[in-house]
Amino acid sequence: MKVMPVIDESKCQKCGLCVSVCQCGALVLTEKRVMVIEVDDCAWCTLCELVCPNEAISCPFEIVIEEKHT
């Protein structure tokens, strides 16, 4: 399963700004909520997180030290 942006439903006001900036079609605004759809093209641009006025959508990065193969 591909990791996708996460929506906090308690903060989401369904304004649709995240949907309007999403370039890969991963976000869909329905009458009740913003849905995240798993798509291959999501490049983790984080624009949805950047525009959200309520910090309701997040695109966390995992921080990992590269394993060195000798």
């Binding site: 984080t46 997180e49 997040s58 695109c59 966390p60 990065f61 995992e62 921080i63 990992v64 030290i65 394993e67």
Partner: peptide
């Protein structure tokens, strides 16, 4: 973290 799944996940 030292391997995938072990590191902290943080937004910008």
């Amino acid at each position: 973290g030292h391997s995938i799944g072990e590191g902290r996940r943080l937004t910008q």
